Structure formats: C-alpha cells, structure tokens
Simulated scan of single mutants.
Amino acid sequence: MIIVDRETMKNIDAYAINELKIPSICLVERASLAVLNNINLDIRNSFGIVASVGNNGADGMALARNLLSIGKKVEIYIVGDIKKASTDFLINFESCKKMTDKIFEIRTIDDIEFFKNNLEKINTIIDAIFGTGLNRTVSGIYSYVIEIINLSNIFTISIDIPSGYDCDGEMDFGTYVDSDFIVSMQLMKKGLYYDTYFRDKIVVEDIGIAQKAIDKFINI
C-alpha cells in the first residue's frame, strides 16, 4: 500500500492535471462515483451534502448531482463564498440548481440553526468541506458546522479525509468530522493510516490519476 503525505498528494494531483493534462473535472467525476459506489443505496435514501467551495466541495457537488439523478432525496448545504468557488465546483453547482431547490448557504447563526434542525430529515451526511490540503486551524462558521455534524449522530461519509483532520497526522486543527466511513481518493493518506480509530473505516478508490504521476513522486 502506498501512503502519502499532504505535499506528495498535492504534487501528484498537480502533475496529473497540469503536465499529463488529465482534466480535473474528470477526476472530480470519478471521485463522486467512487463515493456513490460505496453507499448502500438500499438503506440510504436521504442525504445532506455539506460542501465547501473548493476541490473537496466540487466532489461533493458532483455526488449530489449523481444522487439527484437516481432520485434520492438530497439537501445541499454550502459553506464558504460561492463567488470564490472553483470552476469544477461551479460546473456541478449549476447542474444541481437545475435539479433541486434544496440548496442552502450557511453564512449566519440563523443558517446554522436551520441546518441543525433540517438534519433531522435525513439519514446520511456527506462531508465535503475540507480535503487533504487543509493546513490551518478550523474556525468560525466551519467549526460550528463540524460540531453540528458530530452532535447529530447521523451516519457520516467523508470524501477523501474527515474535514478538519490533518492529512499528515501531525497537527491539531481544532476540530474535525467524526466520520463513520471515509472514501480516500487514489492513495492512503499518512495521517489516517497511522490513526487506528479511522484506519478501519477507510476504503481507497482509484479515480484515474495516471500511474506515471504517482511514480514521479513515489520511490517504492
């Protein structure tokens, strides 16, 4: 098993996209389908997708679109400024807007209360707030949202890594999602591998990053 830290994963992603010209939107789609394929859709019919506006959030929005496409009940909660969203996020966001009106931004205390109360209507949370690139303390609205997710006791699936958790397993960023299941993209992340609490909750899925990109930064 290949285990990577934050910097190595960042370099692999960048090389695949910028040098090998693998479209990032293709990786986003593969990531969303990787999560979808690990959901027991016989028992999980209602979803709260909690997404930021960056790369991890793009995966979450793509998953929301795919869940909506098969008729699942989906409510989307966006944390962060949509005006600063990544292109991949916006592509899937625009599609989701055509498919549902259950899209809510979390910006105020009232929004947080609305989010907390609405979670009672769903049985699965998808955590798509922060990915492996996080390298700072989780604060403000983000910390409140993560606290509500943890207090809800609703089955929570994290995309790639629990939001707020240090990919390298070295830093305490204040709070992180207490995930029930994690779909890690392409390679196992160092912090998760050495954390016995999370290790048995992880599945690693291939999302189409070329082996050439991995080999360039991994010496086996």
Rank of each mutant, 00 (worst) to 15 (best):
I2R: 10
V4M: 01
D5W: 00
R6V: 05
M9Y: 06
D13G: 04
D13A: 09
Y15C: 04
E19G: 00
L20D: 02
K21N: 13
K21V: 11
S24M: 12
S24H: 09
L27T: 13
E29L: 12
E29T: 09
S32G: 15
L33V: 12
N38P: 04
N38Y: 03
I39M: 11
I39K: 01
N40H: 02
N40F: 05
L41M: 11
V50N: 11
A51I: 05
V53K: 07
V53Y: 03
G54P: 03
G54F: 09
N55I: 02
N55P: 06
N56M: 09
N56S: 10
A62Q: 10
A62Y: 12
L63C: 01
A64F: 09
R65E: 04
I70R: 13
K73F: 07
K73D: 09
E75W: 03
I78G: 05
I78R: 07
V79K: 04
V79A: 13
V79S: 00
D81C: 05
D81G: 07
I82P: 03
K84D: 11
T87A: 12
T87C: 10
D88W: 01
S95E: 14
C96Q: 08
M99H: 02
D101H: 10
I103F: 02
F104E: 13
I106P: 01
R107S: 14
I109M: 06
D110P: 03
D110I: 07
D111I: 03
I112F: 08
I112D: 00
F114C: 11
F115L: 02
K116T: 03
N117V: 03
L119C: 02
E120N: 15
K121V: 04
K121T: 12
I122D: 08
I122S: 10
T124Q: 07
D127H: 13
A128P: 00
F130C: 03
L134S: 07
T137M: 01
G140I: 02
I141A: 01
S143N: 02
S143P: 09
Y144A: 05
Y144T: 07
V145E: 03
I146F: 05
I146M: 02
E147N: 14
I148C: 04
I148K: 06
I149W: 07
L151H: 12
S152K: 14
S152T: 01
N153W: 03
I154P: 00
I154N: 01
I157K: 12
I159G: 03
P162T: 07
S163M: 04
D166H: 10
D166S: 15
C167M: 14
C167S: 14
T175Q: 00
T175L: 08
Y176A: 02
V177W: 09
D178F: 02
S179P: 05
F181Q: 09
V183H: 08
V183K: 06
S184Y: 05
S184Q: 13
M185W: 05
L187K: 06
M188R: 14
M188C: 08
K189G: 10
K189A: 12
K190P: 10
G191T: 11
Y193N: 13
D195G: 07
F198S: 07
F198R: 10
R199A: 15
R199Q: 14
V203K: 15
V203F: 11
E205Q: 03
D206Y: 08
G208L: 06
I214E: 08
D215Q: 06
